[in-house]
Every structure is written in structure tokens, then in C-alpha cells.
């Protein structure tokens, strides 16, 4: 078996890289693929909590590259889905603790065992980002429709075009249809015109994500949620299926719903 390495990156922090990694890894595992997510944000570990696996970590990625433990010992099995594993970031070290070649070696070893290796890149364009890029077969760039996120995404695209020559695709996260309609947020097409790389997903802003993260259950486990549906579609596209992009439209409240939400808000 020779698995595929997908790297999730963004340039700017806080646009949803780890959330995307968690959902995509879960989605691929739910689709029957053997998947491992690796948190490469050394020193700022987060993927473990998003996946609800923080209490199971014994060894982390730095332990693996320093050969303190075997790769198998650092693979944390998901409690809900059989095919999903996590390798956590080290929390007490910094980005200099791992080198690009070590990440490449680890990824290549995991290719033998897994269908998909998903690397959660740290924000920025420094060492940690380069570590996450080197082994990638495909890079997924996450942005939101905000100028800082789009500008940083463009910078990342420029670096990847110039040096790494990787296959790239774009996820536009947190699209708020009400703001787009009012003309106060760039639409999917606006962002695509600026960045001009292929789109692999659009994710609507979903207030549920905060509570899903609170309990360590990514949205893809809540398939009725708008973001859960979006991540399911992205998973299908990663698997090579042609799935139409969801229309992100304003959800109209019925009169009863409006009345109920009025009382709820009090």
C-alpha cells in the first residue's frame, strides 16, 4: 500500500486548519479508508482536543522522530471510528524540535500502513510550515473570505508554486450568506477570482462548531449540521468523486421559528 499525504495549511492562523484536518481525517475514516492525522503545530497542540482524544496521548510526534518510542506507540486510536488514528504534537517543545527530513521519513513510513496521512500545518510560512509541505502529495489551503486570510493564502500559494510544485486546492471556510447577500463579505466567486486555484470545498459559517469543539466531536459526526455536510462533500471530492458545491444561502426563518427564537434569546 502506498498512502497519500495531504497537507492542510493556510498562512494565517485561526481560519480553521485543525478543524478541517479533524473533519477530513474523520470523513476519510468513515468512508472506510485508513487515515492518520498528524498535528505538526509543535508547542501549540490542538488537534487532540478538537478530536476529543487529549486524554489518550502518551507519546507525541517529537518522541517519534527522536526515536524515544516506536511509531505504533504514538498512534492514538480514535474512540468512535475504527480506521482513524492521531499522532499528537509535542506541547513542551518548539518548532525546531523536528526537521523536514524527519517528517518526510515518518510520512513515508506511514504510507505503507495508511491510505491517507493528513498533516495539520502550523500557521505561518516558517520552518513548521515547510516541514508540513515537504512530504505532501496534495496541499489543501484553507481561507476565510476576509482580506488578511486571502492575502496570506496567496502568499502560501506563491511559495508553493515557486518552490514545491505541489497540487493545490482551496477550501473557503466560514462563508456567512447573510453578509455576502448584503455585500459585506466576499462571495465564493470573489475569493476564487482573486486566488485562482481549484476549489475543493465551501463551508458555511456554523455556530455549532464552537460547541462541537467544546465536546471534541467534529461536525462531520453531526451530519445534519451545515458544516458537517460541507465536510462530507469535501471528503468525497478528496476521494475523487464529483460532488456539486453546496449553495450557501440564507436560511429563512418561518414566522413560528422567529417567535420562538425571540423568546429563546431573552
Amino acid at each position: 500500500m502506498s498512502g497519500k499525504v495531504l497537507t492542510i495549511t493556510s498562512g494565517k492562523g485561526g481560519v480553521g486548519k485543525s478543524t478541517t484536518t479533524a473533519n477530513l481525517a474523520l470523513g476519510l475514516a468513515l468512508a472506510g479508508k485508513k487515515a492518520v492525522a498528524i498535528d505538526l503545530d509543535i508547542g501549540l497542540r490542538n488537534l487532540d482536543m478538537i478530536l476529543g482524544l487529549e486524554n489518550r496521548i502518551v507519546y507525541d510526534v517529537v518522541n517519534v522522530v527522536e526515536k524515544v518510542c516506536k511509531v505504533k506507540q504514538a498512534l492514538i486510536k480514535d474512540k468512535r471510528v475504527d480506521n482513524l488514528f492521531l499522532i499528537a504534537a509535542a506541547q513542551t517543545r518548539d518548532k525546531s524540535a523536528v526537521k523536514s527530513e524527519q517528517v518526510l521519513e515518518l510520512a513515508n513510513e506511514l504510507r505503507k500502513e495508511f491510505d491517507y496521512i493528513i498533516l495539520d500545518s502550523p500557521a505561518g510560512i516558517e520552518g513548521g510550515f515547510r516541514n508540513a509541505m515537504l512530504p505532501a502529495d496534495e496541499v489543501i489551503i484553507v481561507t476565510t473570505p476576509e482580506i488578511s486570510a486571502v492575502r496570506d493564502a496567496d502568499r502560501v500559494i506563491g511559495i508553493l508554486e515557486a518552490h514545491e510544485k505541489k497540487d493545490m486546492s482551496l477550501i473557503i471556510n466560514r462563508i456567512n450568506p447573510t453578509l455576502v447577500k448584503k455585500g459585506d463579505m466576499m462571495s465564493k466567486n470573489d475569493v476564487l477570482q482573486v486566488l485562482s486555484i481549484p476549489l475543493i470545498g465551501v463551508v458555511p459559517e456554523d455556530g455549532n462548531i464552537v460547541s462541537y469543539t467544546n465536546i471534541g466531536e467534529p461536525s462531520i459526526l453531526h451530519q445534519d449540521s451545515p458544516s458537517g455536510k460541507a465536510y462530507k462533500n469535501i471528503t468525497q471530492r478528496v476521494l475523487g468523486k464529483d460532488v456539486p458545491f453546496m449553495e450557501i444561502i440564507e436560511r429563512k426563518k418561518g414566522i413560528m421559528e422567529t417567535i420562538i427564537s425571540f423568546f429563546k434569546e431573552q
Binding site: P145, R151, R155, G183, D184, M185, D190, Q193, V194
Partner: peptide, 19 residues
């Protein structure tokens, strides 16, 4: 002019330069 349009124009100008 709506702000999304402005954001797009500003980005296109700055990114053309930065690229």
C-alpha cells in the same frame, strides 16, 4: 460601493504587486 467589492479590488491590486 459595498465593502466586499472594495475588499476584492484592494486585494487584487496589492496581490498583483506582491506576486
Amino acid at each position: 460601493k459595498n465593502s466586499a467589492q472594495k475588499a476584492k479590488e484592494r486585494l487584487q491590486i496589492i496581490l498583483a504587486h506582491e506576486r
